[in-house]
Amino acid sequence: MAIVRLIGYFSSIAGYSEKEFIIDQPIKVRDIVNFPNIPEERIIVLINEKGANLDSIINSTDYVKIFPVIGGG
């Protein structure tokens, strides 16, 4: 079971803040989350706290966090 956690406005767009996914075979991040109106360079993906991207592969026990890029005020 992989867990995907969406931070900030990504949870509003997707309608959930955290969800469990059964991963039968390795799958890309972009195959389970989709934010068509947000430029990809504005999306941060961390898998098990390590930097990743939308093409990174999720394995069955991964913890995926997806953040918007912010400028920090």
């Binding site: 900030g8 406005y9 947000i38 504005r42």
Partner: peptide, 18 residues
């Protein structure tokens, strides 16, 4: 900008959860 409506809803306060 795709993020505009989200920015207008929360502004910098979205940073707290981040």
């Amino acid at each position: 900008a795709g993020m505009y409506e989200h920015w207008m809803a929360q502004g910098t306060t979205m940073v707290l959860e981040w």
